[in-house]
Amino acid sequence: MDMSLYPHAVAMSADEFMSWSSAMINEMLSAGTKRTVDKLTGPVWAWAMRNSMHPLHFGLACCAIEMAAASDTRYDAERVGMIYRSSPRQTDILLINGWISKKLRPDIRRLYEQIPAPKWVVAMGECAISGGPWYDSYNIVQGLDQIVPVDVYIPGCPIKPDAMIDGFMLLQKKIDAYFRRGVFMTD
């Protein structure tokens, strides 16, 4: 289990702790064919998932303009296999790139649930991380992790397109760690 991504075990979200602990148990208990199968096929699934990340076409605010700029000619996000799909059924990354108002909470939660299982959430920009410049607003949710478990935070206001692609590089490392512990683990 690559601990470098979890330098401080305290800050793990409940979901991450669950998957980390079940991975530990799987390491110890599993043996024989299941273990070797996981060991062999893990990197293949990881390579496939890493190189075809489809984020949801869902722009909220200023970082959405930079998300669009990330897929243009200079910072081509499609080089790493990222296409923006518009239906949540066919995506695996929920990308939140703006401030989240109280009116939007049920919609984001429903979108998160509609995305099929191995899914990740990327909080892009200060507003999604912690409410950003609208710290004292009555209508803004102060941070995305109050609604959905977040995997990668990309700081900046608004973030540069290359910072976004760098954030997705970090997410690729996390996808690797997720698959190295055995794909068909029900956590």
Binding site: G98, S101, K103, L104, D107, D136, S137, Y138
Partner: peptide, 14 residues
């Protein structure tokens, strides 16, 4: 509309 409402004018008073 109203999904991005943050009370910008009220925050300016602060």
């Amino acid at each position: 509309v109203g999904y991005l409402h943050r009370g910008w004018e009220k925050e300016c008073e602060n």
